[in-house]
């Protein structure tokens, strides 16, 4: 499996660290209420299909990436710098 880092180009999967669903980029406001925080901290989709994850290019450029991939076909559909997605 290879992931195309927007900065480094296509790289082997072993250079990356997997964080999890890309919800960390949509952190609720501190006063958003229990339901919003409950969903943010605990509730995750587990799709057989397209999902968005955070990956860290630990052995490469040190960038956090948002990787859009298909859990059924293992196809990687898009990679973006998390800094650009979040800003």
């Amino acid at each position: 499996m290879r992931i195309s880092c927007p900065l480094c180009g296509p790289r082997d999967r072993r250079e990356f660290y997997y964080r999890g669903a890309a919800v960390a980029l949509q952190r609720p406001a501190a006063d958003a209420g229990e339901d919003a925080w409950q969903a943010y901290v605990f509730l995750r989709d587990n799709p057989a299909g397209v999902t968005r994850d955070l990956w860290y290019h630990a052995q490469g450029c040190g960038a956090w990436l948002v990787v859009t991939r298909d859990t059924a076909s293992h196809e990687i559909l898009a990679t973006e710098l998390a800094a650009e997605v979040a800003s």
Partner: peptide, 10 residues
């Protein structure tokens, strides 16, 4: 130039 791993080393 690039950043990668050599063996297991950054």
């Amino acid at each position: 130039t690039l950043r990668s791993q050599l063996g297991h080393m950054p």
